[in-house]
Design a protein around this nucleic acid. Structure first.
Lengths: 229, 229
DNA sequence: CCGTACCAAATCGTGTAGGATGCAGGATAT
DNA sequence: ATATCCTGCATCCTACACGATTTGGTACGG
């Protein structure tokens, strides 16, 4: 029984989100309302509300009278489209964030990147990779929030879950981690210099580098058989 | 009752959304679950599901154990932030759409702009303005969809409701309508020429013009007293 | 006489339980 | 082999119970 003093629907939302983000449920599989209700020992109403919220994130899809299903794994085209979207949003937000950057903000970014470095060697295991994801996600989200634009943040948030799912595809990769940390460093340095143009270009370069590394992903090399009629 | 009806929650969602987009409920006012349930003659469950979905659009806000409220009317800062966001998203999507543009697409845009011209003289009344909004919204959405990027479209969709609410502030304005139609025409011509750069710049100019016209809005001139503790 | 703190009842959000409806898959008959 | 019916099951909705919040009134203190 989940008994923290908050609303049950919030906990179910978080719990299901963790299931999805940690890849503990197969893509495309059905999410039964009653099943989740029993799993978390609540009734169906909170589950229903949580799933309705999750639908807006695109992580699950709903068919009327047929229930919810986990969104199918991304195709090569999806990965490309997602990175194009990041290329549209994040450099713009980086430039805005740089306008407001102060020493404290730069210090926070350095701390996050240090955490990234520390957790990079977490390792071989799947769960050990989790702190690395979280740190990477936090780095980008911190900049997004600092841009101080409610609507840009909303737009970013609408694809943030998919970015996280993309990270699952990459798994642990020592080389990729090394590049990521270095690229982040360039961005941080631009923030430290209050150089808006440099910061924007550094973020653009970072995402371009992610894109370049993405072509090694399995979805780009294997013909994907997960498309069903 | 039409057989088209799928699930009650969908209808409640549409109904409440219309209430919000048509400005039939005051900004900041409370949305009672039971009240809406009685109003649409359903029970509370479909209403709750509809409101949970609406929350993700930002049109309503939820406080745990305190219910839902219509999001407060935009401040001057909100309007500025929203237009900055459009400036980030829409030119990029316009460029992508231009890559795929064919004669049929251009014809459809011309038809939408013709509808805009036709409904511009609808008039003085409030409801007569509705076809004008819908045509303007459709013009931008049509381009957004044609960009053929699921995630960019999702990001655009996450702020689309707010754009629509912004249109409510403008009310009917003959001069503004004339400018809008002309600016759309420039965009369409660029599409017809398959000139990606020109299309992108035309969209940028269009949103910049909207921004310039926005400074005449009441929220920029009156101290807004709608912020309550 | 006015302001403040406290208390009580109404109100509304939240969660549970149960029943009705519609979909999916398999068996049977043609 | 195709079509039809039937059974199991999950979704969807309603009705009710609980608990938290808010509000209006009252009493106390200044």
């Amino acid at each position: 029984m989940l008994q923290k003093r908050q609303v049950l629907a919030d906990h179910v939302f978080e719990a299901v989100l963790s299931l999805l983000l940690d890849g503990e449920v197969a893509t495309g599989s059905a999410l039964s309302i009653d099943g989740l209700a029993k799993r978390f020992d609540v009734s169906s109403t909170p589950v229903r509300e949580a799933l309705a919220r999750l639908e807006s994130t695109g992580m699950v899809r709903r068919e009327a009278l047929r229930g919810y299903k986990v969104t199918a794994g991304p195709t090569a085209e999806d990965v490309t489209d997602l990175l194009v979207t990041r290329q549209v949003l994040e450099p713009a937000m980086t430039a805005l964030a740089c306008k407001r950057a102060d020493d404290n903000f730069v210090a926070e970014l350095r701390a996050i990147n240090a955490e990234l470095e520390r957790s990079r060697h977490g390792g071989e295991s799947f769960v050990g990779y989790r702190p690395y994801w979280k740190a990477d996600e936090l780095f980008h989200r911190h900049i997004a929030e600092y841009a101080n634009n409610e609507f840009l943040l909303r737009a970013y948030g609408s694809v943030e879950g998919h970015i996280q799912r993309f990270r699952l595809l990459v798994h642990n990769d020592e080389v990729s981690g090394e590049h990521t940390i270095g690229e982040h460093q360039v961005i941080i340095n631009a923030f430290a210099d209050r150089d808006e143009t440099a910061a924007k270009e550094a973020m653009t370069a970072h995402i371009a580098a992610i894109t370049a590394r993405a072509v090694d992903l399995p979805v780009f090399n294997k013909p994907n058989e997960q498309d069903s009629v």
